[in-house]
Design a protein around this nucleic acid. Structure first.
Length: 588
RNA sequence: GGGGCAGUAGCUCAGUUUGGUUAGAGUAUCGGCCUGUCACGCCGAGGGUCGCGGGUUCGAGUCCCGUCUGCCCCGCCA
């Protein structure tokens, strides 16, 4: 090896030892005589000192060093003078007095300096990713990612799950997201699709008797992207045969406990509450509520209706709701501040936002105060837990679920704005009892909320299947961590009759269903055990662990929001010869 | 598909509100000084297609139209 130690390991106890280090020049501090070099590698940083009094020629050579050169030097580890110890640096007790210096590679003036105090634009960071990845924070994130990968394999393997790979070149199933497709050379006009998830394969593995399966696998979805969504992303895919819903949730909780304790080194939450989908929407306006925010939505419809306030009365008569949210300490909000938040909800489809608060004499102000009886407002204020001295509540009306969802978005936005979220707190919960299907008004048909293999809760299936399919509850469950959906799964249908009936409900005729899902439907006829599973969004887990706001900060080579790889330049054109092989022509 | 923010020196940004002298700062680079620094310090120099195209104007970084790129959000997506 070129080195005897890494740049992160030398301590006081090594003093007097000979050492050879290699790494990148992070800093040069040329004091005229003495020259200090901070050398960096993935393990840390070490200060190297060149003293012209010891070796003038070597010091002159060290003067030439610049940022990001790759160097190697030998020298003696020595403790720094007492008042020169750097407490902020793990290796700050010592320095290396170099007696040789070798430049392994010089470096052009770097377009991006991988040092913390420089914060280049994300575009620039992605263009020069190989330099960006040298930064301490990026290295720390990718090291955490590695630790989680290793822990994940060890955990599931320890619980008797088998890691089995599934194909990337597979068949397009036009349910769910848009597929990325790959043309076949050997079968012109035919296409593979990259998997949106290994869903069908893992179910087939259950049918094949591999009763506990997991895979850390790349998935592909051609949709629009966000801070927490990439066109390709990594899932921890898990499936079990013969489980009850609770067995899967138990495995997941054991996995999460280890993740908290061994990877993050923090306490696992005392409880992981379970919340029904309906309650999640009603109380938080979201199926992935952030429980770190202490304030909940309150349904004020019954209290505020019937006072002659037309907007409210009409909405409630039509089956809509009046929903309130406490905003502590915001009583003195100006008209302008209020209209800013009103704009927020209007952009998301609500008609307006009413402040509910008392004026100087203690009487209620605004349109609510004008139309609604004070006693009703007092009750509403109790329900919201308002402190009339300081607080204000926002009230909006509209149809369910939109009014709840938009108020939920408002709750999140206010939480960020007013710092209601304690970043050191961790809140996990299960969201369960999702509807099995949802009625799509535009397409006039039922759609699976999850995917079409999700099993219903048997009682509700029997009760509603012929009357009102939208009321059927599914055996699906999502794990939500600090407002981020980090895992989702379900018990699957293993009964052919039920599967066929569900396809009927969602308007897939037998013929089409057979074409799209033939291999799974066929397998279901040959001894399918009860089974179910879950998939974790691996990148989102790493995001949570590292406290990052963007999935791109935990992926070595991510894409932009327009699905472009700025570093390697993908997507790009191909030779016309390649197109000829595939018998493809680009129409203008 | 829709909305918002941003694009000025290698990099990070000011200047754009109200059009007007030679477009500035920090940092990086280059040169000089400096023997205990750790974002070393001090002095000096070079460095600009103001994203791109068009328009208005005597005159555009600044106003108007279009367009590209990045980020955030809605829709979409599990």
């Amino acid at each position: 090896m070129y080195r005897t130690h890494t740049c992160g390991e030398l301590r006081g106890e090594h003093k007097g030892q000979r050492t050879t280090l290699a790494g990148w020049v992070a800093r040069v501090r040329d004091l005229g005589g003495l020259i200090f070099i901070t050398v960096r590698d993935r393990y840390g940083r070490t200060q190297v000192v060149f003293d012209p009094a010891d070796n003038a020629e070597l010091a002159a050579k060290a003067k030439e060093l610049r940022s990001e050169w790759v160097v190697r030097f030998e020298g003696e580890v020595r403790s720094r003078p007492d008042d020169m110890i750097n407490r902020n640096m793990p290796t700050g007790e010592i320095e290396v007095a170099a007696d040789t210096l070798e430049v392994l590679a010089s470096c052009e003036t770097p377009p991006l300096q991988p040092e913390d105090e420089f914060e280049p634009s994300e575009e620039h960071r992605l263009r020069w990713r190989f330099l960006d990845l040298r930064r301490d924070v990026m290295q720390a994130s990718l090291i955490k990612r590695h630790e989680l990968l290793q822990y994940t394999r060890q955990f599931f393997s320890g619980e008797k799950f088998l890691e089995i790979e599934t194909p990337f070149l597979t068949r397009s199933t036009p349910e769910g997201a848009r597929d990325f497709i790959v043309p076949s050379r050997i079968h012109p006009g035919n296409w593979y699709a990259l998997p949106q998830s290994p869903q069908t394969y893992k179910q087939i593995l259950m049918i094949s008797g591999y009763d506990r399966y997991f895979q850390i696998v790349r998935c592909f979805r051609d949709e629009d992207f966000r801070a927490n969504r990439q066109p390709e992303f990594t899932q921890i895919d898990v499936e079990m045969a013969f489980p009850h819903r609770q067995d899967i949730m138990d495995v997941v909780e054991r996995y999460m406990r280890g993740l908290f304790e061994e990877i993050m080194h923090v306490d696992f939450p005392a409880e992981v509450p379970e919340l029904s989908y309906a309650d999640a929407i009603r109380r938080f306006g979201s199926d992935k509520p952030d429980l770190r925010i202490p304030y909940e939505l309150v349904d004020l419809s019954d209290l505020l209706k019937g006072h002659g306030f037309a907007v409210i009365d009409k909405t409630v008569e039509d089956g809509g709701f009046a929903v309130g949210l406490r905003v502590p300490g915001f009583k003195s909000a100006s008209r302008k501040q209020v209209s800013l938040w009103e704009e927020f909800v209007k952009e998301r489809g609500l008609g307006g936002l009413m402040p509910m608060r008392t004026g100087e004499e203690g009487s209620w102000t605004g349109p609510l105060g004008k139309f609604v009886a004070p006693e009703a407002l007092a009750k509403a204020s109790d329900a919201l837990d308002l402190n009339l001295e300081d607080d204000l509540a926002f009230v909006a009306v509209g149809k369910a679920p939109r009014v709840f969802q938009v108020m939920g978005m408002l709750r999140l936005a206010l939480g960020r704005e007013f710092g209601w979220i304690d970043p050191n707190r961790h809140e996990l919960l299960w969201v369960t009892q999702f509807p099995l299907v949802d009625y799509n008004e535009e397409e006039k048909r039922y759609e699976p909320l999850h995917h079409p293999f999700t099993a219903p809760e048997l009682d509700s299936w029997n009760e509603w299947v012929d009357k009102d399919p939208a009321k059927i509850a599914s055996q699906a469950y999502d794990l939500v961590w600090n407002g981020e959906e980090v895992a989702g799964g379900s018990i699957r249908i293993h009964d052919r009759e039920m599967q066929a009936r569900l396809f009927e409900i969602i308007g897939l005729d037998a013929e089409t269903a057979r074409k799209r899902f033939s291999f799974l439907l066929e397998a279901l006829q040959y001894g399918a055990p009860p089974h179910g599973g879950i998939a974790f969004g691996f990148d989102r887990l790493v995001m949570q662990i590292t406290g990052k706001d963007s999935i791109r900060d935990v992926i070595a080579f991510p894409k932009t929001t327009a699905a472009v790889a700025l570093f390697e330049g993908a997507p790009g054109e191909v030779d016309s010869g390649q197109l000829d092989d595939l018998r493809l022509r680009i129409s203008k």
